[in-house]
Simulated assay, not measured.
Amino acid sequence: MLTSNHAHSQHQWLTSDCSNNIELFLLPIILLPGGRQRLKIIDAKHLALISRVLKKQCPLVMALTHSNGEGLYPWGILVEVTNFSQTKEGFLTIDIHAQQMVALLGCHQAEPHRWLCRIEASDHWSPPAPVTQSTHLNPTQLNPIQAKNGSQTGSSLNQKTTYIDEHQNQYVKQLKSLFKAQPLRAELYTETYFSQLEWVVARLIEQLPLPSQAQKEFLKPNSFQHVVHFLNTLLKISDPN
């Protein structure tokens, strides 16, 4: 297991309005805050990138290119490398934990296969339900990244949590079914938050076989109600209203 102050140093970079020359990891993968993924590093340019990040303990942002290949998508996700190992074939594998949505500013290609960017922290989803006493966060209800860092500042799952109601239980059933079908991915989640709507919705968006463009839409700030409506339609759940 990787042990370092990597996560702490990453979040120090986000205490100012924006950060300069952040390394970008360009992958066609959607991860939202709290998401986890195991990656096999085969490409030499990706191996060089991960080596730089681990050696310098500098921040890493996972980003996407536009489908037409022209430039980068304007939002990315700050990730932490939480573990690394080597396969029998000699390839490096890393576990990444998605922490904070960020806006990409002033991106430039420093080398043929190396992108750098300025970033600023970006709030992501705002639950549609009003905050009540029952939905205020306490330390035992924090999502994974908030609990780990002991701070709600800049949380991309926002500063309030909406809990699963009877109408949304199908979300949980679907997610548990996906986890059962993908045990290697499920084992990355040492803690699960099946009672928290935002956490469950985020994991569904990451794992359901959705078109890339639809997934990208859900990276946008304030897209939560759109996501819920999309999932209700996809899972054939009637609007409770």
Rank of each mutant, 00 (worst) to 15 (best):
Ser151Ile: 00
Asn143Phe: 05
Asn232Met: 13
Gln99Glu: 14
Asp43Ser: 14
His124Tyr: 15
Ile96Arg: 11
Leu137Pro: 05
His136Met: 09
Ala186Thr: 06
Pro209Ser: 10
Gly154Glu: 03
Glu206Ile: 05
Gln196Leu: 01
Thr82Lys: 02
Lys236Glu: 04
Ile50Asp: 04
Pro59Val: 00
Cys58Thr: 12
Leu24Asp: 03
Val53Phe: 10
Phe179Ile: 04
His11Gln: 04
Pro139His: 12
Pro221Trp: 01
Leu60Thr: 01
Ala103Leu: 11
Ser16Phe: 00
Ser16Ala: 11
Phe84His: 15
Thr15Asp: 05
Arg52Tyr: 04
Gly76Arg: 09
Ile30Phe: 13
Thr87Gly: 09
Ile22Ala: 01
Glu191Ala: 01
Arg52Asn: 12
Leu64Lys: 12
Lys148Leu: 12
Leu14Val: 01
Asn21Trp: 03
Val61Tyr: 10
Gln215Thr: 11
Glu191Tyr: 00
Ile237Arg: 05
Ala63Asn: 08
Val81Arg: 03
Gln196His: 03
Lys88Ser: 11
Val227Glu: 13
Thr65Cys: 09
Asp43Val: 10
Leu78Trp: 11
Ala186Pro: 12
Gly76Thr: 03
Phe218Asp: 07
Ser223Ile: 03
Ser85Arg: 10
Phe194Ile: 05
Pro28Ile: 01
Ala7Gly: 11
Met101Leu: 15
Asp43Thr: 10
Ile145Ser: 06
Asn143Ala: 00
Phe194Glu: 07
Asn68Lys: 01
Arg203Asn: 06
Glu111Gly: 02
Pro211Cys: 02
Lys45Trp: 10
Val201Thr: 15
Ala48Ile: 06
Pro128Phe: 08
